[in-house]
Design a protein around this nucleic acid. Structure first.
Length: 260
DNA sequence: AGGACGCCCTGTTCGC
DNA sequence: TGCGAACAGGGCGTCC
């Protein structure tokens, strides 16, 4: 689901398709997805402007509107963006549509309407307002260790807590814990320094590899757990049947032999 | 503080 | 085979 690797991939896609083009029209198909703005507000902010640059923090993607605020997009669990030319190629479940002067369109697509689109003064104002922790790719080893010292509860919940570390969700927390060989329900306070260090390194390498793969599970290294997150699958390392356990109301997939 | 739970959403999968 | 229940999970609010 849209976590850091997906958002990074969307950012690159946005940069490739949608920067420095004048916006002709804005259409909000589903106003319920709007965050602190209205269809009129969004239209007013975007019409006849262009996007200058992009930024991201955790699961949020930002696009700078020339001489103005930032468009912010969050993708919930099923959101994506799609650039297309012909009306017939408009994706199903398009909730928000930008039409550029060149006749091409950028669609914000969200089948389950769990994502949000809005306007913010700066990325930082959103980060502050939503109480987001440091981005998982920017958090330093020191910050990571400091959090581990203070944090109570299980390790998977920690990795997924956006106020602690921004950008990791259910899928990649499983992947990171798999590579670090840590059981998802292990208590954070139970991890020694070397294990915290291993977890930090696994977080960085997993996220980077996933970004290199364009967040496409089919393109990821064969050592990844991601393609095996289903019933009856086996561990890509030792062949043991993959197990599940609930953590923070989400299903964690893990290898009962590799992860302790 | 953190976890369990319900809710929002809707397409897909599961189980009887 | 068919239908409703359960599930998928990001984030939020509530309760404990």
């Amino acid at each position: 689901m849209p976590e850091i690797p997906d958002v990074e991939t969307y950012k690159r896609y946005f940069n490739k398709t949608s920067l420095h083009q004048r916006i002709r029209r804005v259409h909000v198909e589903s106003p319920s997805i709007l965050f602190e703005t209205s269809p009129q507000g969004l239209g007013h902010a975007l019409k006849h402007k262009s996007f200058q640059s992009t930024d991201s923090h955790g699961k949020y993607l930002f696009a700078a509107i020339e001489d103005d605020k930032w468009l912010v997009m969050h993708f919930g669990m099923t959101g994506e963006i799609k650039y297309f030319q012909h009306q017939k190629d408009m994706p199903k479940y398009t909730r928000f549509l930008i039409t550029f002067e060149n006749g091409c369109h950028l669609a914000y697509v969200a089948p389950r309407k769990l994502g949000r689109v809005g306007l913010v003064d700066t990325p930082q104002s959103l980060i502050t307002g939503q109480h987001l922790g440091p981005d998982a790719l920017e958090i330093t080893g020191e910050q990571f260790h400091e959090q581990a010292m203070k944090r109570r509860g299980n390790v998977k919940s920690w990795l997924m807590a956006q106020s602690s570390i921004a950008g990791i969700g259910n899928v990649y927390s499983d992947e990171i814990l798999f590579h670090a060989r840590i059981h998802p329900k292990r208590s954070v306070s139970d991890l020694d320094e070397a294990t915290v260090q291993r977890l930090y390194k696994a977080m960085q390498s997993v996220l980077k590899a996933a970004i290199d793969a364009g967040a496409d599970p089919d393109e990821m290294p064969s050592s990844f757990l991601l393609p095996h997150r289903n019933k009856g699958a086996h561990c890509p390392v030792c062949g043991t049947r993959i197990a599940t356990v609930k953590a923070s109301g989400r299903t964690a997939w893990y290898c009962p032999k590799c992860q302790t």
